[in-house]
Write a protein that binds this DNA or RNA. Structure first.
Lengths: 207, 207, 207, 207
DNA sequence: CATGAATGAGTGTTCATTCAT
DNA sequence: CATGAATGAACACTCATTCAT
């Protein structure tokens, strides 16, 4: 069904833009329909309601990100290596899907409570990573729950600053710094050497 | 003004509860009036509009917190000492005014852009603290903007986790750990001296 | 009661200005109170309601004008003479109480139907004048009802034009022309000679 | 567009009746919707607001009448002939669209100021007719602005009386008398020729 | 007498949703 | 499948009026 598929994507894109700009409640179905260039009632062929659209937009992407990060978290290597790839993926997501990131950031407070706790989430992935590292002795100190929160804070808050223009754009630009901060926080034993992968990888991809 | 004062406070309290529970847009003026036990139109003697109420609730408390933190930041002492008192005040605020904190957390994305950049904000206070410490050589390295974001993340994200039940309640309970994390992150040279309880206790438990 | 009297006059003046500018329904009691510099509820010490205020403002002035014109209509002299003094009084009223005239003009459609038909009105005065003149043979032609309407139209429509800026200001400036028009319309036998009273009277008063 | 067209007309008709009976401000959208037998929000598919509805109702009909009268004013013939057809059209409009006439009469004070001065209006048409006649020497004397106002008064005031029941119904019944009055007022030189019914009949009755 | 906080019905308008075409 | 007119509940807000102070 190529026809309905394209329409659905136009709806998604329009909704994303408007939800980010005005919030889910502040966006009307009519707004979405106008931007997606469909008729007023047309949205209901694809989604049961506006809420359903917002929820699917949130949960699909949130779960998708969680799944990707979850796979990266299972990869071989020590904590720094795994954290590096996860942070890289996160920063890439921020840079390449800015609208989607802003949407997840802005709507998390409304949509997160609806997530079934069994669903894999980036938070759970991170928590597992941290608590495993503690068991393995890779991390010196601290409560796993708190450390998870703080590692997330080290990643998320710079992204939030970037959204508000308090930090120059480009999460991939600072991903090595973020990683370094995380490792200092957790007191990881293996400290990255200067000139190592994360920076390099980026430069390679960019050239 | 004893008559209007009580009403105004009932409105504030009701609005706070409802805004936190359902968001500003999701809360109707009727809801607020009903919870505050006033007539529907009564809100407008005290606030120009629902938006005005939400904005005043946000900005007054945000500015109030900023002012308190700003004064603590100006106190004598090295970075760890000043950061400790600021974190303590923040954690105290979280514990003693949970509703207010949740409100500020939830509505920041909507209300922050309205803040005039000249207004003192907690973010600015923290940024000043970090950049001063860098100039004084108290901090080893790193971009001040990024460090500010990350220090904030180390404080705010645990609070956020607590709001969502991902972390056991009580920010004051973990304020020493948070401080320790911040100091590890920034690589502060002057480590807290022996004889100071909160940091040690936590560090001991963690090690 | 000098205190209440002054307040009442301020209310009248404020109401008049606002009623003319925005209509009775378009003006709120709060508007009136603000302009009159009294408290919101203060109007009710003087009038039972906003409607009551509007009605009193209309009927008192309408009846007052009717009474004055009625007395002029009873004066001695032929139709042209009596018509001249009545037109003069009307034009004077227009020039000296512009706000009041506009108010009567604008609200007549709402308030006139409330007038008890026994109340003396300018229309009735005019009608009596015209039908008497017909009986006396002073007027050649026409149905008295229609003539009354048309004489009124010859006076009122120029005034209306003046209100809308379609005619240069000053009803007294053109009162002789208006009279002449009325006399031409009714086919009055005694035509005014050039250089006669109406113009003179005006000039005298003006010098 | 058969579906929306009928609804639109029902709205127009209902609004007209209510605006005439209670004024624009005195009529609620609920009133209109109830009388038009549509849902409360349905009006807004056809008009942007209640004000928009009132304005369109006024301006479309006012402009329509102006256009018709403007074309009649351009017709061949002397002033009396052209005035007769215009008065006839006006009287016909009054008799055939009584609600519409009352609406225009009642709302003119609110809506007229919104008319762009370039828009053709009945007043402008009449003014042109009068000033042309003066240039042609068809009219003896007088200021064109004043004469325009007075001719209009001779037509409009009887109509107003009829609205208020001060004159027996039927403007077409008295159109010849109105014309005769206008001609007497302006002192037209060319008097209607013998063999033309309406004027004569009236003049005969009047003499 | 004056004040202005409080009332609560009512207003114009929006909006998610339905459904005949 | 798409359209857009129609629905009607809900919304933010206004306002004439009352009355405790």
């Amino acid at each position: 069904m190529p026809r309905g598929f394209a329409t659905r994507n136009r709806i998604k894109q329009a909704a994303l833009e408007l939800f980010v700009a005005k919030g889910v409640l502040g966006t009307s179905v009519r707004d979405i329909a106008a931007l997606a260039e469909i008729a007023e009632g047309g949205l209901y062929r694809h989604y049961a309601s506006k809420e359903d659209l917002a929820w699917k937009l949130f949960s699909e992407n949130y779960a998708g990100l969680a799944k990707e990060l979850g796979e990266l978290a299972k990869a071989k290597g020590d904590l720094p290596a795994r954290l590096r790839t996860m942070i890289h993926r996160f920063c890439q997501f921020f840079d390449e899907e800015p609208l989607l990131f802003r949407f997840l950031l802005l709507t998390q407070h409304q949509e997160l409570p609806k997530l079934k706790s069994k669903t894999q989430s980036p938070v759970q992935v991170l928590h597992r990573l941290v608590s495993d590292a503690r068991k393995n002795g890779e991390i010196e100190a601290g409560d796993a729950d708190l450390l998870t929160a703080q590692v997330l804070g080290l990643i998320l808050q710079p992204a939030t600053f970037m959204v508000y223009g308090l930090l120059a754009p480009g999460m991939q630009r600072i991903e090595a710094d973020i990683l370094a901060g995380c490792l200092r926080l957790v007191g990881a034993r293996a400290i990255e050497k200067p000139g190592e992968e994360p920076g390099r990888t980026r430069l390679r991809r960019a050239s």
